[in-house]
Amino acid sequence: MKLTLARTGTAEPDPQDCLDLYRRLAGPVTVVTTCGPDGEPLGLTASAVTTVSLRPPMLLACLSGGSGTLAALRTRRTFAVHLLRSGQEALATTFAGPGGSGKFARVVFGWELGVPVLDGTLGRAVCTLVEERVYGDHSVVVGRVVSVRAGGSPDDGPSPLLWVDRRFRALAGVEGERGES
């Protein structure tokens, strides 16, 4: 294990060392969608998404600062977050690359509250933009959930798709093991 220190007031840790740590953080694979200025659907894959609050219901997503989806979200102020299920790696890959609204030519989707929503995901939330903060090369967007759909109990079907160590993974459950809180 290599130790990299940043001295106060001098240099930062080596970015590669940071990437080596970050890639070990497991995150849910989501697709964030919104509507562009000409009404075209836009979206991107994001793995830095989490809950903020239950009352009121809020989600947080970290989006690349140069993203066309982020630019449209700033204008539209409404977006959807889709939680992908294991087995939806192709969908995640479609939205991870460039392509603007062309990404939607390969997927089944509808519209809800003026934003495109993907069919067949583990769940989704449509949100209104509450706040955006820029940190480094990403923006943190916080959205208030105004509509939500979840696909049954986690025990009923496929698990969420995860991104860890630069590849897709699925949860591996152990039969009969349940956490109590």
Rank of each mutant, 00 (worst) to 15 (best):
G97S: 13
P98S: 15
G100Y: 05
G100D: 04
S101H: 12
S101W: 10
S101D: 10
G102P: 05
G102F: 08
G102W: 02
G102R: 09
F104M: 07
F104E: 08
A105D: 15
R106E: 15
R106S: 15
V108H: 08
G110E: 06
G110K: 06
G110D: 12
W111E: 15
W111R: 14
E112K: 12
E112D: 13
L113N: 01
L113E: 04
L113S: 05
V115Y: 03
V115F: 07
P116W: 00
P116E: 02
P116I: 01
P116V: 04
V117P: 01
V117F: 03
V117S: 03
V117G: 01
V117Y: 02
L118Q: 03
L118M: 10
L118R: 02
L118W: 01
D119V: 14
G120Q: 09
T121I: 05
T121R: 02
T121N: 05
L122C: 07
G123H: 02
R124D: 01
R124A: 03
R124N: 03
R124W: 07
R124H: 15
A125T: 08
A125E: 04
A125C: 15
A125R: 00
V126D: 00
V126L: 07
C127D: 00
C127P: 00
T128I: 07
T128P: 00
T128C: 07
L129C: 09
L129K: 07
V130Y: 02
V130N: 03
V130C: 10
E131R: 14
E131D: 15
E131H: 14
E132I: 05
R133C: 06
R133P: 00
V134N: 08
V134Y: 07
Y135M: 12
G136F: 08
G136S: 13
D137W: 10
D137G: 12
H138Y: 12
S139E: 05
V140C: 10
V140W: 10
V141D: 00
V141K: 00
V142I: 15
V142E: 00
G143N: 06
G143L: 03
R144L: 05
R144C: 05
R144S: 06
R144H: 13
V145H: 05
V145E: 04
V145W: 00
V145L: 09
V146I: 15
V146L: 03
S147V: 06
V148P: 01
V148H: 14
V148G: 13
R149V: 12
R149D: 10
A150Q: 13
A150V: 15
G151T: 10
G152T: 07
P154C: 11
D155Q: 11
D156R: 08
D156S: 14
D156N: 14
G157F: 14
P158H: 06
P158K: 04
S159G: 11
P160N: 04
P160G: 06
P160D: 11
P160R: 01
L161W: 02
L162C: 13
W163F: 13
V164N: 10
V164W: 01
D165R: 13
R166Q: 14
R167W: 10
R167F: 08
R167G: 15
R167N: 11
R167I: 05
F168L: 10
F168E: 06
R169E: 09
R169T: 06
A170F: 04
L171F: 14
L171N: 10
L171G: 13
A172C: 14
A172D: 08
A172S: 15
G173Q: 09
G173L: 14
V174M: 12
V174N: 06
E175T: 10
G176H: 11
G176L: 06
G176Y: 12
E177Q: 13
R178C: 08
R178Y: 09
